[in-house]
Structure formats: C-alpha cells, structure tokens
Nucleic acid binder design. Sequence first.
DNA 1: TTAAATTTTTAGACTCGCCTAAATTTTAAT
DNA 2: ATTAAAATTTAGGCGAGTCTAAAAATTTAA
Lengths: 218, 218
Amino acid sequence: MHSVSEENYIKTIYHLQDGDALVSTNEIAGRMNTKASSVTDMLKKLAEKQLAEYVPYKGSRLTSAGLDCAMQIIRKHRLWEVFLVEKLNFSWDEVHEVAEQLEHIQSRKLIDQLDQLLDHPKYDPHGDPIPDAQGNYEQPKHTQLSQLKPQDSGVLAGVLDTSTRFLQYLDKHQIELGTQITIVDHEEFDGSFIIKTAQKSLPISKTVADQLYLKLNS
Amino acid sequence: MHSVSEENYIKTIYHLQDGDALVSTNEIAGRMNTKASSVTDMLKKLAEKQLAEYVPYKGSRLTSAGLDCAMQIIRKHRLWEVFLVEKLNFSWDEVHEVAEQLEHIQSRKLIDQLDQLLDHPKYDPHGDPIPDAQGNYEQPKHTQLSQLKPQDSGVLAGVLDTSTRFLQYLDKHQIELGTQITIVDHEEFDGSFIIKTAQKSLPISKTVADQLYLKLNS
DNA sequence: TTAAATTTTTAGACTCGCCTAAATTTTAAT
DNA sequence: ATTAAAATTTAGGCGAGTCTAAAAATTTAA
Ligand SMILES: [Mn+2]
Ligand SMILES: [Mn+2]
Ligand SMILES: [Mn+2]
Ligand SMILES: [Mn+2]
C-alpha cells in the first residue's frame, strides 16, 4: 500500500497538525531529522496520491484519506506499545523505538487479534488514546499540571513528552500513570511547583509540569 | 545492521544450501521471484560484507557470519509464527506472510521476551525447529511418509511444503501436527499411499507423501 | 570436439528516498 | 518601500534495489 517512508511522513504531519492550519515544511523536517528539500519531494508525492494537500511555500495538511491512514498507523503504534508493556515486560520508556518499526507491519488480522489479546485497551502506556478499528477515539480532556493551583489533585493520566530521558526522570521519582498527585505549592517567579505523591514531596520545574496531564479528582 | 533485502537473500541462500555445495544464482532468483541479474548484484554485496562467498559463474554459499545471521532471522520468523498461532488465533496456513515481515524487526529484547512469553517453544507451527538465542538447534530426524511401508505408523511432526494451498488441503482432511497416521497401503506403480487417521482412511499421492514427516511410533 | 542451449554476468536504465547547493519566494526589519 | 533574513523549492546527484537487453561463460548435445 504505502511505503514505510510515506507512513512516517503521514504520521508526522498528523502530529504537527493543529486544526486545519497548514503544517510547514520546516516543522516536518525538524521533527523527522531530514532536510526541507526531502520533505518537499515527499509532500509532492503525498499530494499526488491524494493523501495530503500541498500548497507550495505555504505548507501541507492531510486529506481525509491521509487522516484515515494516520489513524491506522497510530492505532497500530499504540497497540504494539501496550503489547510490549503488558506482555513482554518492556518499560514505558523502551517501547517507542520498537513500536516505530512494528507500526508498519501490514496485516489487518494481526492488529485486530492483537487488540483482542490486549482486551481492547483504550490508552497506550503514555496515556494516549488508541483509535478503534474505524479510526475513532475520544481525546480525554485532562488538565495540564501547570494549570493547577495549590490543593488541586488528581491522578497522572498522560505525559506529553515520551522521550526516554523524561520517562526515566519520572521513574526515578516513582511517578507513573495512575499516581495520585497533589499540588502543594506554586512559585510564581519561575513557574515551578511542589507536588506530593503517596511516596514523597517533589519540586518540579515548569518544563516538567507542562508535560504532565492529570485526571482531576471528582 | 542489514537491510530487509539482504536478510531475505541470506535466508533464501540458507534454505537452498545443502552441505557445502554452492547455491546457483538461478535457484536464488527462482525462489525469490527476482531476476538473475539482481541476484548477481546482491551476491557481490553479500560477499563484500563477508556474509557469503561468491564464485562468479559457480554460485555462492554463506560464510559463518552469514550463517549466524540466517539463524537469527529464522529464529525470529519461527517464534513469530508460534506467537501468531498460539496467541493470535492464526491458522498454520496464515502465518507465513506476516512472519515474513515480522522477522525483520530489530530488537534483541523483543525476541528474547517473545521467546519467554511463548515458553521457549522448540518447534514452529509447521514442525520446523526454532534455533535458540545462540543459533543452535537440533534437526529432528523424522521420517518422510513416502519412505514407509504398510503397517508403519507415527504422528505427523512436520511438513515440507508450507504453502497455503497444501496446508489447507491437510486441514480439509483433518490432518494436523500431532495427528496419528498409519500406512494402510502403498501402490508401487504411482507411489501413492492409503493412510489412516483416527478420523478416516485417505488416499494420498506420492507428491503429498513426500511433504509429510512422521515421528515413528515407539 | 564442435555447436547449440543454458546459465550467468555486464551494461545501462529506472524508481525511491535522500542529500547539497543554488535559486526563488515569503516574512521581518529597517 | 526597500532591504535583509528566513523559509522553501528547484536542480542535480547519490546509493540501494530492481529491471531489460546484450555479452560472456558454462554446460549439454550432436
Ligand atoms: Mn515508524
Ligand atoms: Mn505512546
Ligand atoms: Mn522476510
Ligand atoms: Mn514455519
């Protein structure tokens, strides 16, 4: 159907896309560690294949066919991540690289059965929602920790940054999905917070607070 | 490490190799549905990379590095096949195409954990032995059904042809790995047999008899 | 043993995905 | 409104992997 390279571009455009704004060539190149000229080449091909609209010098956006394709890839990526964590003892910071490969395996039955084996999970190990076979999913409306005030509390339901570095930082401080977190204090001058979990109190920078999404308590 | 294409060539050479005889360019091309000229190109590259010896106009054979590589790919292929059958409800005639893709996923941890999840299986769904992490395996010495005489019996332990067509033929006649089979009769003039299972008696051609490997009783 | 048939390699070309360098367009700043 | 800076595209090229057609080597058959 589509090449691995095409699929990676489609997924990247999807992730960079915000509403119906065009995604710039440079943004794609930056995210994919390629050169802008390579991106231009691929955008022409995706436009040719009706997977993306491409307006020279302005940017690109996925067509509905491209969006469908993106959802299938993301569904596969996230299901494989769940599989790796639930069945193969991977930690949440190890799954990305492998899922990046597995998401390109072509087999409808494979992914349907995997979904079943895992009991139709709704979220991946980083709290991201898993689209169903039709490509539909509901974006849970979680609250960025950095938006909260002292006394607010909730459980960690998602992380924005899924890099190994960041996830291992959370591991080090015994913070994982489902961890109950209460805001203790907020420093206005640098935006940092002091948070409390069942285990301990912890000061975190604004940078970290921006990455954490909580499901607020009742 | 090695490209998907290189890996596919290595695997093919392994399967065609018999002792230390050279494998011919045309044999490889035939098996891989490519042209002889493409094979020549790749053989030069594999020789360059020390994965195969290549004697122009004579043929090629894997070096010990190539053999190691082949065993790892085959290990992955067969473990994934077991996974598909045991965990994802694939039938033995559906696994090959998908395993052909999955065998190229690069992750040591993935395959070690998969092996563990499956309880270190010794054989794949077609009765082929699964190499261990070091690439070692013992070729079970099963007997080709076509070598047997009336009264001989055993359980089906392996099939040579793993094509969908052939496996579905066996399914149709309720023959699967582990099925107890007794030779009832052997026709000298065309090499055909009449065999008996718990379910029924069945005449099979020499062609079919050649594909079936039995573990003899007692 | 010579000629014909077969196998294999070489030569040249193509697509895909990527790159660098140069040209062009857009945007931001004076 | 010009000009400088930044973003983007074009032009040309490269490696991997494949193909077709032609040349060369090997095998087989007469
Ligand atoms: Mn990917
Ligand atoms: Mn994820
Ligand atoms: Mn393969
Ligand atoms: Mn098999």
